[in-house]
Amino acid sequence: MRAVSAPLLAAQSARFAELDPLLPAAVAPPEGEGLVVALPGGDRVAGVVTRTEHPRGAAPTLWAASEVWELHPLLGGAPGSAMDVLLRRWAGAMARVAVEQDSSCLVTWPSRDVAASAALLAHGFAPLSVLAVRVPAARGPSRRHPVSVRRAGFEDLEFLTRSAMAELEYSAQVGSAVVRPAAPRIKWASLSVHLAQGDPVWIAERGGEPVGHLEGWQTVSAPASWAETRVPHGRWGYVNCLSVLPGSRGSGVGGALVDTAHDELLNGAVGSFLYFNPPNPLSPVFWARRGYRPLWTLWELRPASALR
């Protein structure tokens, strides 16, 4: 498999650069089950399948199935239509595996590869999440907002948890999020960690009452880092969660939080990125207006036994 993957990685990096200048170079997939298939012309493409099991009560269960089967394609310089051949091979392998009901198949692939998108749709996948990126442009005129924004502290944990749950409950209707019984505890613990280590968390207030929050931090894309597979090397701002309480949505609260966060997250950074759900009727337009555009699409199929 290693002999096959080396030239495919080099060709895939070149193709990624043609598809989108903000795509990072392809990196070697993690250890897993190797798949190698021949294209009609005789060239070969490959992939690696990994299985991840998230225990009950673990944080990833709020945005993923308990059992995740992920394909890491190595299409080299082949057109996106080669994805269909690889998916057929994967479907045959999965047909021989017993999977849980709370399971999924996952493929993360460049958003601009529309031929691959057609193949993924044909095999039953849905584009439930997108990694969107923003490279800052020249600062425009300052905008007036209908709310005040401040940094949150430990005394705000009760509201922050309630706000995070509001976002989770909405996202579960339009994306890959799942409302688990342990969700409030997980959110409380996660927010506590971010506050303890100094990660910025902002609260928007109207008339002294909190109406939304945003979490974010800076991360460095470097060799062997998790961000290296998603964005080019450098320091990036990451927007982790934006939530506005139901009664205040559509009134400018989200924009105020994002503008405030950008002032800090983009300090010394080459850009910022985040995840949103394409089926969400609010997110795609909101983030596009703030300069974000899709870079990677996360294609999911639940349960994993539905792969065809």
Rank of each mutant, 00 (worst) to 15 (best):
A11I: 03
S13N: 04
R15F: 08
A17R: 13
L19N: 09
D20A: 06
L22H: 14
A28H: 01
P29R: 00
A46G: 12
T50E: 03
T50G: 07
E53F: 12
P55K: 03
A59M: 07
T61V: 14
A65Q: 08
S66C: 03
V68M: 03
P73Y: 00
D84C: 06
L87M: 12
R88A: 04
W90V: 03
G92S: 13
M94C: 04
R96I: 11
A98P: 11
E100I: 01
S103F: 04
S104M: 04
S111H: 14
D113M: 05
H123W: 05
G124N: 10
L128F: 07
A132V: 00
V135L: 11
A137V: 10
S142K: 08
S142R: 15
R143V: 10
P146R: 05
S148G: 14
A152N: 09
F154W: 08
E155K: 13
D156M: 03
S163P: 13
A164D: 14
A166I: 14
L168E: 11
Y170G: 02
Q173R: 15
S176K: 00
V178T: 14
R180T: 15
A183H: 01
R185I: 04
K187S: 11
A189R: 15
G198I: 07
W202A: 09
A204M: 12
E215A: 09
T219W: 03
V220S: 10
E228C: 00
R235P: 03
G237P: 06
Y238A: 04
V239T: 06
C241N: 14
V244F: 04
G252P: 12
H262W: 13
H262R: 05
G271S: 06
S272V: 02
N277Y: 13
F286I: 11
W287L: 02
G291T: 07
A304H: 10
R308A: 09
